[in-house]
């Protein structure tokens, strides 16, 4: 199939990319841009490991054709830290023991970022509900939820 040129702004950098129509955003990020922090697990939209933020909203890169992301702004895990400074969510995940094997972590972090952008002071129940599309086999989710709440507290304190 014919390749087409699309423009993606990924982590603040504009990329002109040539893709075939059936190529997913996940493949572009991993195979063309070498941003392997975005994972692929189930390929069925069930596990959330491939989550990225598209125009600030959490979406599944495995279920998104790259063509449909043309012109959009994409944040992957590689873009979450700014100027070498970890995002408070990253710090909290590290400090709270929210990371074990780490394969779900990029998706968890980005979904959590979308949550805190939308709702800076969530309850425990709201965190659990927002993360219900992200599967984890290691942690039992306890420390993940702890970490999101800790990050929210930290961010609210910092007035960010």
């Amino acid at each position: 199939m014919k390749k087409e040129i699309i423009n993606l702004t990924v982590n603040g950098t504009l990329h002109e990319i040539s893709v075939e129509p059936q190529v997913t955003l996940n493949e572009v990020l991993r195979e063309q841009l070498d941003l392997t922090g975005t994972k692929l697990s189930c390929g069925a939209g069930e596990c959330g490991a491939c989550t990225v933020l598209i125009d600030g909203k959490p979406e599944l890169s495995c279920c998104t054709l790259a063509m449909t992301a043309n012109g959009k702004d994409i944040l992957t895990i590689e873009g979450l830290a700014r100027d070498g400074e970890l995002h408070p969510l990253q710090k909290a995940f590290v400090e709270c023991g929210a990371i074990q094997c780490g394969f779900c972590t990029p998706g968890m972090l980005l979904t959590s970022k979308a949550l805190l952008d939308e709702n800076p002071d969530p309850t425990r129940e709201e965190v659990k509900s927002y993360l219900s599309g992200n599967l984890c086999r290691c942690t039992g989710y306890v420390k993940i939820v702890d970490a999101v709440l800790a990050a929210a507290t930290e961010m609210n304190k910092g007035g960010k």
Partner: peptide, 10 residues
Amino acid sequence: VLLKATGEAR
């Protein structure tokens, strides 16, 4: 663990 939080872990 830090590398898993930044996406650098391969």
